[in-house]
């Protein structure tokens, strides 16, 4: 479990950058997994891939 301040901060920072809730949720899920220290390298890489792929580069808005 991570502090609610951390979750809130992630949501605010994502919002400020124009990222949607879906991305914020995926980032929170990965940070929670990091905090549990129970992931192996492959699970960590899978989480990170999901997060990176969900990032909106803003090209659609142009």
């Amino acid at each position: 479990m991570i502090d609610s301040e951390i979750k809130n901060a992630i949501r605010i920072a994502c919002g400020q950058d124009g990222q949607d809730d879906d991305f914020a949720n995926k980032l929170i899920k990965w940070v929670e997994a990091l905090s549990s220290k129970s992931m192996n390298a492959s699970q960590n890489s899978d989480h990170l891939n999901v997060v990176i792929k969900s990032i909106n580069l803003g090209k659609d808005k142009q």
């Binding site: 502090d3 301040e5 951390i6 809130n8 901060a9 992630i10 605010i12 920072a13 994502c14 400020q16 950058d17 990222q19 980032l27 997060v51 990176i52 792929k53 990032i55 580069l57």
Partner: peptide
């Protein structure tokens, strides 16, 4: 994408730190 992720994480840390 990685630059953006790092920027968001750094920014989130500042926000969380201020609130804490």
């Amino acid at each position: 994408r990685i630059n953006l992720l790092s920027k968001i994480a750094t920014n989130a840390k500042l926000i969380a730190k201020k609130s804490l």
